[in-house]
Structure formats: C-alpha cells, structure tokens
Design a protein around this nucleic acid. Structure first.
Length: 975
DNA sequence: ACCGCCGGGTGCC
DNA sequence: ACCGCCGGGTGCC
C-alpha cells in the first residue's frame, strides 16, 4: 500500500516539508490566470460530486469547509486526476474518476475556476461529498455548461447552499452587506487603532545608544513578542487534538507555522528604523541581545566614514567596521555559546505566554489519549504544571558549567519521545494562544544575520542611522551588499550581523544562476518601505518571497493605498497561513470583502490586526501624544499677475475653454483627455512663469496629418502630461506612471502595463480609457533629446510675479534669521531651473533635488543640505515628487509650495519631509496661489476632495476615475 | 465500505 | 457449471 502512495503521506505540515512545498506550489500555480481577477468571475453554477480515497490521506475537512482542487496531469493512474486539498494544503483525496475527467477538461482549458466546498463534516472515512462551483468569464459559460451536461452531470444554478466558509449550517449563509461608505470607512480604519492595550514597553539593550521614546519601546516590545512568542494567533484553537482555524473553520493535524514578524506600519518619522535597529540588537536567539558593548576596551568610534558612504570610491560592497575579535570570542556571539552565562532564558514577553514545550505536549497527550474530552480544565492544569516543571528544569540543568537553553532542552525532550506518535494533541488550554516549540526547534540555530532590503534612496539613511544609534564600542558587522564588487560569498554573508541591500540588487541576484542572498539562511529579513513589493508579478516581489529566513518584517508607512490586493503580497511575504496561498486569500478575504460582505471584512480585520502595529503622528498613548512635533502652519500667499501676464494668461484660458467646451459639446472629453489635461497644465505653468511652456506652444487639438507630425504631437502631449512632474496615474496599474508611453489615441500608460494589455488581447487590444484600437507598434515614448533650448531659457531670462513673490519672501526671511532653511517646491522642474537665476543673483547658497538626479547625487545633496557646517546651503529646490517618501529634510523649517498639486496628499508628504521627528522649529508652509486663476480653483477642489467620501477601494475603475477627474477639470475651467 | 466489485469456490435439498 | 449463488478479499487517482 505504501508503494502506491506516489504523492503525499502522513499529515504533512507547511513550509518545512518539501512535499508540502511542492503541493502548495501546485496550489499556487493553479488558476493563476483567473486569479488575476478573482472578484470579477461569474458563478456559472454548481454540482455535487464525490471525493474518494480519503483513507490514504491525512487532510481533514470540516463541515462546510472549502477545499481546493488541483490538477495532477502527471498522475500515473489517470492523467485527468484532480486532487483535493484542504485549506492547509494537506491532501484530502481525489475527485472520482468520471467527474475528474470533466473537471480536467474545464480546468485545463481554463474555461472556469472550480472551487469546492464540503457539505458534510469530518466523519467521512472513505468518500465524501463535495459541492463544486464553477466561476469564470461570461463568454465561457456556454462551453462549461455544454461540457457538464454532455457528460451527464447536472449543473445547478446558484451555490446550492454550501458556499459558506462558516459551514456550521447547510443553509446558505446570510451575508450582511455593507454600504460602500461603511466599507470605505472600515477599510480606511483597517490599519488604525491596532494598538494592543496589553502591549508593554521594552528598553533596548545598552548597545543602542539613542534612548527610545515610549512609543518606540512599545514597538520594540511588540516586535520582540512577535518574534519570540511561538504562540499561534488567536484565531487558532486546539480542538479535539487538531489545530482549528476560526477564520476558515478548518483544522490541521500539524501545527501551522506561526508568523514570526509582522508589519510595522507606523507613520514615517516615528522611528521605524531606530526601532528596527534596536530589535536587531536586542532580540537575537531566544530573546537575548545580539551584541553588548565591549566594556573592557571601549574603542573610539572609528572607521565610520567607510560605512557611511555607499558611493565612496571603492564605495560599494564595503565591509563596514570589520570585527577584530575572532568570532567565537566576540561578545556578539555569546548568545550562541553554551558556556556563556545565560542572562535571561526567556524574555519577559515569552514567560507571559504560558509556554508548553513540545515534549510536554506529547506527555500530556499520551496521558489523556484514551480518556477523551471532559475535564478540559484538568488537562489545562496538567499543561500548566508541565510548563512549570520544564521551566525549572531549564534553570537548573547546568551540566559542567553548561546551561541547556530552553530550546535545546525542548529538542532533547522531543528527542526522547521520538518513538511516540507525532500526533499533536494538546488539551484545550486555558490561554488561547497555543504554544509549541516545535516550530522553533526546526530553526537553523546558526542563522544570525539580518538582511535589510530597502530602496536605494534610503540606503544611506540606514547606514547613517546604524552609525548614529549603535554604540561606537559595539562591534556590529554591517555589510553593504551593493555594487558590482559586492562579496557574494555566502559564508561571509551569513557571518554578518546585518546585511544591507536594495530591492534592485536582490532581484538582479535572483534572476541569476545562484543567488547568494537566497542561499543564506537568514535570521531575519526586513523589508523597508515594504509596500514596494505590493505587486506580486514584479520580479523583486518574487525574489523577496523566496528568501530563506526565520523572521520577517515589513516596514511601511503606507501598508495599503487603495487596493485590497496590495495587502496580499504582504500577507504572502509574512507567510500568514493559509492566506499566503492566493486561492484562500481570494475566497476567504478578497472576494467577500469586495462584495461587501461584513464577515469577510471582519476576517480581514482580524488578520491584519494580528500582524500589524500602526501608529500615526497623531496617535496617543495613555492620553499623551506619541511624539510632540513642533507646530506647523500653512499660509496662502496670493499673487497678483502683472498686466502683461494677465493678458497672456487670459488669452490661453479663453482658447483652452473654447477647446474644452467643444469637446464637451461633442461628448469627446474622455477621448481627448490628454489634450484637456495639456490645456490645464499650460495654464498652471502660466501662473508660475510664462517661459515654462518651452517649445510646447504649438496648438494641440489640431488633427495631425503626417505620421511624423502625429508623433511630434504625441511626444509633446506626453511631455505636457508628465514631463512637468504632475502626478498622472496609469489607468492600468493605477499607480504613478513609470516608463511612460502614449497611445495614438493620446492616453498615457506605463509601457509594461499597456504592453501587457496588448499582449493579452492581441489584435483586439483596445485602449482601456477610450476603447480605441491600440497596437504595440504605435506606442510613442519620450525621445532622448532635450536640453538644447535650456540655455535659451536662461539667456533670455525674465522674472514673473510668482518669482518675485518668492524672492521677496526669501530675502525677508534671510534678513530676519539667516539660520532658517527653506524648501522651495514645484511640480515643474523647469520652474526650478528658472528660479536658480535670481537665487544666484541674490547670493543664496542652494542645492537642488529632482527626479532626474542619480541616487548618488541625491544622497550628496541631502547630506549637504542637512549638514550644519558653516556655509551649507539655506535653500533646497525640490521637485514635488522627487525621491519618494522617507527622505529626511528636517534641516528646513520653511516650505514654499510654488504651485498647487492635484493631490493634496502629495503636498502633505512633501511637507512631512521636514515636519518630522528631529524638527526643532515650528514649520511654516507658504502656498503661492495666483489670484483669479486655475490655481485658486484647484485649492477649492483640494478642499472638497478631503471631505469627499470616495467609493470603496479597487472597485472604482480607471475610466470612472478619469470621469471624476474630468469633472474636476471642467470645474477648474469654470465650465 | 452496514457498500459494490472482483474472482475463486462451489453446485438438489 | 458457457450459469447463479455464496462469502472472503478488497477498495482513489
């Protein structure tokens, strides 16, 4: 019989078991095409079938529980085989042969996604019923129905009452639907109020020389608990010897792997970096510190220059601060050494959790193996006692000066009981988090390095902060894994304390043959700005998922922007079972939530809550604000145009209005969207400076005749839409446009996004915005030209009202207090160029930061601006979206916003770069608004926008967005 | 599986 | 005895 099992075996668990890995990969792999739109499929109907061969597998399925159907084309007995697996990836059985033939046909041809629900409970011994439902695109309905009926199965319409996740009843679940507004609010608040009341505080170890603020101590405490506490999240219970998940109502025999890590989603500026550094130093194996200061020989802070500068000559791949002491004698290694005195075997946090060790469990389970239920209480007591006994054993088991550490002890215990059946049955313990050290005992104790992955822009920030917050006499090995000369030796990497790298390097390595970063067994992986990996199709996301580590952290200020799907990737990275498998995420969370199902949302909230800590700048702890930032005030300075400027402006405005009116009359606004936008951009540019338009003064809107002319026109539009730094979004990915291309119908997308549309729709490809025909060959991108007329711009330089307004503000400021630094912000980089002239003339020392600069140059500029050395610049010219989040410009306390942005959040984000932790002065923001212009209207709309309750996330389709944007434009033009 | 199916043993009652 | 019937072995794909 054994030999007939070609796949699977006795109750396998998740990641550790290679077989399961294959299985979950198989599950992941299925239906990926359809999974791309999990919430758009239509239900064709359902039918009852049977699952056979139950007795060969260990997967348990409860009444009403969902199962997944996985094709097994390689099955030696039947190439049509369809395997049935439960939520945790354990195989349950197979679909009966004849039905499997039908499903194979449907699944292989991608005609429908097939989902299974088991209507009757666990007692099925040999076969069981399964209700299969078929979801897919409407155009495939006929084919599916035909397939089913031709094989004389009967398709019932509707879900036949067994669709519920919560399968306690055989009745269709009553779904409580939420209104869009409720949903939106709930979603907005998803990440709010996640502060656990019981969260304690924890001091960092001495090695961290910066004192932690109270909220940072809380975060540290929380992070340590997340890492050390092997208890399962509260939605797991032990029921009748099985691990039961209250979210999915399903059970597993094997203890699911607990998430060790989470999402630290604090607002930026609250010190996520510092807290993470504190975590690295404070919580090595078993809650003990990684490094302690070398008290014997305090060394002067040395060689900081080497680590500081990723761009130094040899710059890249520097070993920062080489540890001199042989590894074994380094204090940093102590945690691993048996002969060292153990300071605290269990951290305070762990002790609270009522630990039950592996061995104890077995002991308990054997005791009560026969006499079933009842006395749950008695069992719990036994468990507790066992825990206590064990605790004692640990603290007294010194043998020849060696102390058995808790886990070693646990391992020893489980070793003794190896012969006993590996069945894990623990009495229903009083404390809901069920512990078992089993997951830990599989950890590689040699793993010691933390890998930090961040965007290039904050790489230097990490180095700075490590330098700043770690005591100089602590030998922390930090290796910057970056640049072509980086050391790829895995032993070397493994021996570091911290390895720092970027997402780009990671994905570059990953696409290679043997990725060093994927070979190392990490103690911890930290994703800084973790929202970067929200697109699961991205190479860097895939690379990140494949890292081999015990603990996983995501640092982000913006865990989700507007789409539930963003969250999945984070969940998958954390391996939050079982939702790291797309199917369960879709079925349990995504589809229900997008359909407005209240329980779906509650599940989502529970899920998020158990892995996330988020505080905002305005959060309060015990009634006190988290951080006390200096005041910030906004004043609007109205700018009057000169007579001549006004005339020019009115001319352009009148022309623009008539063009747009014509589109409105023709009903072609949407189709001429880029044109409309261009008109608007032109007016906004006029408000800043008449020369901003450059050579784009040609009239748009005129129908082009020759292809060259058309191309020229499209490029011009593209430049108008994007080149100015306005925040246009791609209608496919709904993100800011990257690698912009413009279609012949004048709509702008990211090249990869629209290329994918064209690839998948082939000849029928249509523009997502206007449904016009599009072809790959007709996509126009920016030519690599420019710059000839830049000098022209500066030679015939003239001023403008807004320039004058800024200059007089700056001059006044300098005469009042010449230590105050300012950010001068515009969306138009050309405007920044124009501003350079008068700044130079008046003898202001300034730097400039915009999106065209190399990362290297950016870091230099930021450092220069932040430096308090005499003669350092007073002003930074900053393009609104340059550098993204996370840049620290706290040296500035004045912000001049030269032109209003579409998106008030972009302005806020920009201001936040100086109004953040470390800011000593009150921050004053000045917004220049030209009186009687589009700018005034933009400010009005910004205000309305803030009050506006938008429709729920994700569901809003791109053209809808554009429609509302068009409404805005009409309002701006007073049409 | 308290089934169905297979195949060997068996063969009036 | 080329059947029926009985009862044991057996059992997913």
């Amino acid at each position: 019989m054994q030999s007939r099992r070609w796949f699977g075996g006795a109750g396998f668990s998740f990641a550790d078991d290679p077989v399961t890995e294959t299985l979950s990969q198989a599950i992941r792999g299925t239906g990926e095409e359809l999974d791309r739109e999990p919430d758009t499929g239509v239900l064709f109907g359902s039918l009852r079938g049977s699952v056979v061969g139950l007795r060969y597998y260990t997967g348990v399925v409860n009444k009403g529980e969902m199962v997944s159907l996985v094709r097994q084309p390689q099955n030696p007995y039947d190439r049509n085989a369809v395997m049935v697996a439960n939520v945790y990836g354990s195989q349950v059985g197979h679909i009966k042969r004849e039905l499997a033939a039908l499903l194979a046909n449907i699944m292989d041809n991608n005609l429908a996604r097939v989902e299974g629900v088991v209507p009757f409970g666990v007692k099925n011994q040999f076969t069981m019923s399964v209700v299969l439902s078929f979801w897919g695109r409407e155009e495939n309905r006929d084919a599916v129905v035909r397939q089913i009926t031709s094989r004389s199965f009967k398709l019932q319409s509707g879900p036949t009452g067994f669709m519920c996740v919560d399968g306690s009843r055989d009745l269709p679940r009553k779904t409580v639907l939420l209104t869009a507004e409720e949903l939106k609010n709930a979603f907005d608040n998803l990440f709010e109020n996640l502060m656990e009341d019981k969260i304690g505080e924890r001091e960092a170890v001495e090695a961290v020389c910066t004192p932690l603020l109270p909220h940072q101590k809380q975060a540290l405490s929380w992070m340590c608990v997340c890492e050390n506490n092997t208890a399962l999240p509260h939605f797991w219970e032990v029921k009748e010897g099985l691990f039961y998940n209250t979210l999915t109502h399903s059970s597993v025999r094997e203890r699911p792997q607990r998430v060790r890590g989470g999402i630290l989603a604090d607002d930026m500026g609250l010190g996520k970096t510092l807290t993470t550094i504190a975590l690295i130093l404070s919580n090595f194996h078993h809650g003990k510190p990684l490094c302690e200061p070398e008290k014997s020989s305090p060394e002067p802070k040395a060689s900081t220059t080497a680590r500081k500068n990723p761009e130094g000559k040899s710059g890249e791949g520097v070993q920062a601060e080489v540890s001199v002491a042989p590894a074994g004698h380094s204090p940093c290694m102590r945690a691993n050494q048996a002969e060292t005195q153990v300071v605290c075997v269990e951290s305070v946090d762990v002790v609270q959790e009522d630990v039950v060790e592996d061995g104890d469990e077995d002991w308990v389970s054997e005791k009560k193996a026969k006499g079933r239920p009842q006395g749950g209480k008695a069992k719990a007591t036994t468990t507790k006692k066992a825990a206590k006994t064990k605790g004692k054993a640990v603290s007294t088991s010194r043998k020849g000066g060696a102390v058995l550490e808790d886990l070693d002890f646990a391992a020893a215990l489980s070793g003794l009981t190896q012969g006993a059946p590996q069945k894990k049955s623990v009495g229903k313990s009083v404390v809901s988090p069920v512990e078992a050290a089993s997951s830990q005992s599989t950890d590689d104790p040699a793993a010691r390095a933390t890998l930090i992955i961040c965007p290039l822009s904050v790489l230097s920030n990490w180095l700075d902060q490590l330098d700043q917050h770690v005591r100089a006499d602590v030998k922390l090995n930090v290796y910057l894994y970056y640049g072509s000369e980086r050391n790829r030796d895995t032993h070397f990497l493994s021996s570091q304390h911290v390895v720092l790298t970027t997402y780009n390097v990671l994905s570059a390595d990953y696409s290679g043959i043997a990725s060093p970063l994927h070979t190392v067994s990490w103690l911890r992986v930290v994703l800084d700005e973790g929202h970067i990996i929200r697109n699961p199709n991205a190479q860097q996301s895939k690379a990140v998922l494949k890292l081999n580590t015990q603990r996983r952290w995501i640092l982000t200020g913006t865990p989700i922007q507007n789409n539930l799907r963003d969250l999945w990737m984070l969940v998958a990275f954390l391996r939050l079972k079982p939702f790291d498998v797309r199917e369960w995420w879709n079925r349990v969370i995504q589809r229900p939530v997008t359909q407005g199902d209240k329980t779906g949302l509650q599940n989502l909230q529970a899920l998020v809550k158990c892995v996330t800590l988020r505080r905002t700048k305005t959060s309060r702890v015990c009634g006190r604000p988290l951080v006390s930032l200096p005041e910030r005030s906004v004043r609007i300075e109205e700018v009057e145009l000169t007579q001549k400027e006004r005339e020019e402006y009115e001319l352009a405005r009148t022309e623009g209005r008539s063009t747009i009116s014509r589109y409105v009359a023709e009903g072609t606004v949407l189709r001429n969207y880029a044109d409309v936008l261009a008109i608007l951009v032109r007016l906004r540019q006029f408000c800043c400076h008449p020369d901003l338009l450059g050579k784009t003064t040609t009239h748009t809107g005129v129908v082009a005749v020759t292809p060259a002319e058309l191309r020229e026109r499209l490029i011009m539009k593209l430049r108008l839409v994007l080149g100015t730094g306005s925040d246009e979004e791609c209608a496919v990915c709904l993100d800011s446009v990257r690698l912009p291309v413009i279609t012949h119908c004048a709509h702008v997308y990211c090249r990869p996004c629209i290329a994918e549309v064209i690839r998948s729709e082939q000849e029928q490809a249509r523009c997502p915005l206007c449904r016009g025909q599009i072809k790959a060959s007709e996509l126009v991108e920016f030519p690599l030209e420019e710059e000839e007329e830049e000098s022209n711009l500066l030679e015939n330089w003239r001023s403008s009202s807004k320039v004058e307004a800024l200059m007089s503000s700056l001059l006044r400021l300098r005469s009042e207090d010449d230590s105050i630094r300012s950010l001068v912000v515009s969306q138009f980089t050309r405007f920044l160029t124009i501003l350079e002239i008068p700044l130079r003339e008046e003898g202001f020392k300034f730097v400039r930061l915009d999106g065209t600069m190399s990362q290297k140059r950016r870091a230099q500029v930021i450092q220069e601006f932040q430096s308090d050395a005499p003669g350092s610049p007073l002003i930074m010219l900053l393009s609104l979206k340059a550098g993204g989040v996370g840049i620290n410009l706290s040296a500035a306390s004045r912000v001049f916003l030269m032109d209003p942005a579409w998106n008030p959040a972009a302005e806020d984000q920009c201001v936040d770069r100086c109004h953040r932790l470390g800011q000593k002065r009150d921050v004053v923001i000045t917004k220049f608004i030209v009186k009687g212009s589009v700018e005034e209207n933009m400010v009005k709309i910004q205000r309305q926008k803030q009050d506006l309750v938008e429709k729920a996330f994700g569901t809003k389709n791109p053209s809808e967005r554009k429609t509302s944007r068009v409404d805005e434009i009409l309002a701006l033009m007073e049409l």
